[in-house]
Amino acid sequence: MTTLIARTVSKACLPIIILFSVSLLLAGHDNPGGGFIGGVMFATAVSLMYVVFGLNYIEALYNNNWDKWFGIGLLVASLTGIGAMLFGYNFLRSMSIYATLPLVGSTKIISTTFFDIGVYLVVIGGLLYIFKSMGEDK
């Protein structure tokens, strides 16, 4: 069984890793990062919890069908491409606008981000579905 140190540290680490993965996701379009790396990092964080606390304990807290995430991600990513077609451009044509958001200020909103979000969800869903279904097997 895992030690108290491992439990405490992984509990403290979980939000940090997830936040970092989201920041990687949102930086992905013109800086190092992206949906794949962020998704792998998120999956690592959750699988760390699975390893440290055990599958049953985590499932009692929060039971999730990760394959749904996969489907949503695939849908978001491909609909981003279709979305460009609705504006009269080619599939997956990316465009960016500068918008002023509340709290954040002037931000560059780029359509690639939505594609990245789709990839992020696909990677999370795929990896965690594998972890979970293999881990359940006795």
Binding site: K68, I72, G73, S78, L79, G81, N90
Partner: peptide
Amino acid sequence: ILMEHVPIILIALPIIFGALTIF
């Protein structure tokens, strides 16, 4: 104008429905 998009629709449509059928 729609004719131009047919090649990508042939690829994208099965992918979208592959995702939809999961649900």
